[in-house]
Design a protein around this nucleic acid. Structure first.
Length: 677
RNA sequence: UGCGGGUUAGUGUAGUCGGUCAACACGCAGGACUCAUGAUCCUGAGACCGUGGGUUCGAGUCCCACACCCGCUACCA
């Protein structure tokens, strides 16, 4: 492997429309922090940057909804996130933001360079423009009448009723979701990054030159290659973002995904005048820590931008993690199903390392993992307290008892030497694992050193020997103290707050990484401070309270989910209504349509005949349980073939706000074919 | 539906090139110890490695099919 002179580490910029939660921490910021702290201990030249991503449409919408400016919104969350990171020991060299002056400058220079080099292609297309908001509308902020089925709630990109994907311009009676105004079709021109031209380069670079990347990352890239890369628009018609630095581009800003990764560069520039060596020198190792949702941006789009610019290096690795679930359910900002970092820090004062430990031990490195409060309690009580905290306490308390906190002399036997050997080996293993982004394994290795210490004490039994061979006990306690001191280095990347306290107790300066396993970190005659417990047990009550809090969130969600009532559709005439032939039908049989998740093929006796209807209810009903059910069915609907089966008619279903479906059934046992009007 | 990832003891996970690979942690059972936050140490029980085929002298490990879970995508008359 190449020997790099320095490291440039970036972590995905958190989007400033909400605070960060444990999923963000476990997936991105904690692994980065462990990695960087380790590199610093190795005395490497390393720079770690991060910052808030503050552009993009969702922020403008949130601002509008709250009657504030986009800047107000991003200020609020930027400050919450920044403070939470600091308090949690996320030790970035700089935490910047993409609304900074330096970022505008850097992003514009970058864009201009690409533009001057003729990298971009330009294309004109027609898009809807909201005259009230004075802005172009992204497809999903448009609604209207579907040109195919006349459904009125169709979105600009798709009709949810008939399922066809649409071109926004084909929508009938389009309405802006933002203002309710009728948008006009206007021509607009956009800049495109020709990803397709870089495909051969990317394929070689990722699939051949970087085989060491996680297979989730290369797998994702491979799937993009299979579809074929397309030019990607990097400009938007919006008034919130970095303005394009080119002529005739009024009202246009950079696509948020174009400017955000440049934020890494801007932050570096803001931090040091010497920024270029971190971004443009081949001897620098560039590493992007991200979550799996960001893979294409960091392994395809941003590298193409860097490559096209010409003077930048490309990432050496993109260690993407999977997602963390919470108590079995997907974390969701909008449903408030999350443990927010800033709230944890409020409620668990001084317990940063406890959380860091649990998250690191449970990091979603290869697949999605689950955070459970019970597991939080178990890991802290049975591992942190019982193994690490206990060993440290035993060593220090014994030293206090026997030697009044003075480090005794050491006269090592081969058994003692073996301990130092093992610590050395562990140190190398931890290094190796961290360098390969295997943080949970690395953490385990570190804990094994504490286990080794516990075993050493159990084997040598100084509390017995003190009566028969006090000379020997001196050496034993010396070895135990050296082990504790080694732990104060080896644990630093994972548990920085604890190691600081530990070093204070030992009354030593922070040793360097390579000192771990040395015999002389604690010099004989040195005076240590009084022993304190490193960790407290987590009581059942604490965990129960958190679980209750989450349950409450669930209940609140249910309650506050005011049935989202869809607006009334356009008035129809009685004659229109009479056109539909709605009947009571009886379900004769049903079976799942193969290879689909939601579709059931249902045989219905309509009185008129028995016919097959495809219904999208398989997630709510099993075929067995609906046989014999009386349902309401629209029978004169034009048949449509789906998945090779012809569906003649439509079973009417009630739909809840959260998407739950239920049959509409007559209250009395009406016969099949009874009309409904 | 397409693509990607996953499916290994009660739980969470390791298993790089196919041959001590069935491992580690927690939990559980029994024992030892008492310096330590009822912590620690030792011993033990617990997995036919999602299912079914195939390649091979030999497969969690390679190939094929299927099932289930997650993400994106499609579909949901």
């Amino acid at each position: 492997m190449k020997d790099f002179k320095r490291y440039m580490v970036t972590s995905a910029l958190p989007y400033a429309n909400g605070p960060v939660h444990l999923g963000h921490i476990a997936g991105v910021y904690l692994p980065s922090d462990i990695y960087v702290r380790y590199l610093r201990l190795m005395k490497k030249d390393v720079l770690w940057v991060c910052g808030s991503d503050e552009h993009g449409v969702p922020i403008t919408l949130k601002a509008k909804k709250e009657g504030k400016s986009p800047q107000d919104i991003v200020d609020r969350y930027h400050n919450i996130i920044k403070k939470a990171f600091e308090d949690f020991g996320i030790s970035t060299d700089i935490y910047s933001r993409t609304t900074s002056e330096m970022h505008y400058k850097t992003a514009q220079e970058f864009f201009k360079t690409l533009n001057d080099k003729g990298v971009f292609s330009k294309k004109t297309s027609k898009q809807f423009f909201d005259p009230e908001e004075k802005m172009f509308l992204a497809d999903r902020y448009l609604s209207g009448t579907c040109p195919h089925c006349d459904h009125e709630g169709a979105y600009g990109d798709q009709c949810e009723n008939c399922g066809t994907s649409l071109n926004a311009e084909d929508l009938k009676n389009p309405v802006s979701q933002l203002s309710g105004a009728t948008p006009e079709l206007r021509e607009t021109e956009h800049w495109y990054l020709p990803l397709d031209e870089y495909e051969p380069f990317l394929k070689k670079w990722i699939l051949e030159d970087h085989k060491e990347w996680k297979n989730t990352v290369s797998g994702q890239c491979r799937s993009w290659f299979e579809i074929g890369l397309q030019p990607r628009a990097v400009s938007r018609d919006l008034n919130w973002g970095v303005p394009l630095p080119v002529e005739n581009s009024e009202g246009k800003v950079m696509y948020v995904w174009f400017d955000a990764p440049i934020g890494y560069i801007s932050a570096t520039r803001e931090h040091t005048a010497d920024w270029e060596k971190y971004w443009k020198d081949e001897d620098t190792k560039l590493v992007h820590f991200i979550g799996k949702d960001n893979i294409v941006f960091h392994s395809i789009i941003f590298p193409v931008m860097l490559k096209a610019e010409g003077s930048y290096i490309l990432p050496d690795n993109v260690p993407a993690n999977q997602f963390l679930n919470l108590e079995g359910d997907k974390i969701s900002t909008s449903r408030n199903w999350a443990v927010w970092l800033h709230e944890y820090l409020e409620e668990f004062k001084g317990k940063q390392d406890e959380l860091r430990y649990v998250l690191a031990a449970n990091m979603p490195e290869a697949k999605d993992n689950d955070f459970r409060w019970k597991d939080y309690q178990d890991k802290i009580n049975n591992e942190l307290v019982a193994v690490l905290g206990n060993f440290v306490n035993r060593a220090l308390v014994l030293t206090q008892k026997y030697y009044d906190n003075i480090v005794p002399e050491c006269d090592c036997t081969p058994e003692d030497d073996a301990i130092f050997e093992q610590i050395k080996t562990a140190q190398q293993k931890i290094s190796d694992k961290i360098e390969h982004f295997r943080f949970r394994d690395a953490l385990k290795e570190m804990m094994d050193v504490a286990r080794l210490g516990n075993k050493y004490l159990a084997d040598t039994e100084p509390w017995k020997l003190i009566k028969t061979n006090p000379e020997r006990v001196k050496t034993i306690m010396n070895v135990a103290l050296q082990t504790v001191a080694s732990l104060s280095v080896l644990a630093e990347p994972f548990l920085p707050f604890t190691t600081k306290r530990l070093q204070k107790m030992l009354n030593i300066d922070a040793p360097g990484w390579t000192n771990a396993g040395a015999k002389n970190i604690m010099v004989p005659g040195h005076q240590t401070a009084k022993a304190e417990l490193l960790f407290e047990k987590v009581e059942d009550e604490v965990v129960e309270q958190q679980v209750r809090k989450l349950l409450k969130t669930k209940e609140n969600n249910k309650a506050s989910e005011k049935p989202q009532v869809t607006p009334m559709k356009k008035e129809i005439t009685f004659e229109d209504f009479l056109k539909s032939d709605i009947r009571v039908g009886v379900i004769k049989s049903a079976e799942k349509v193969k290879k689909t998740k939601k579709l059931l093929a249902v045989e219905v006796d309509t009185g008129v005949d028995t016919r097959t209807v495809i219904s999208g209810i398989a997630e709510h009903y099993t075929p067995e349980e609906i046989i014999g059910k009386r349902v309401v069915i629209l029978i004169n609907l034009a048949p449509k073939k789906m998945r090779g089966i012809e569906s003649a008619g439509m079973i009417l279903m009630g739909e809840d706000a959260d998407g739950k479906l239920t049959f509409i059934s007559p209250e009395d046992d009406f016969h099949a074919g009874a009309t409904i009007s």
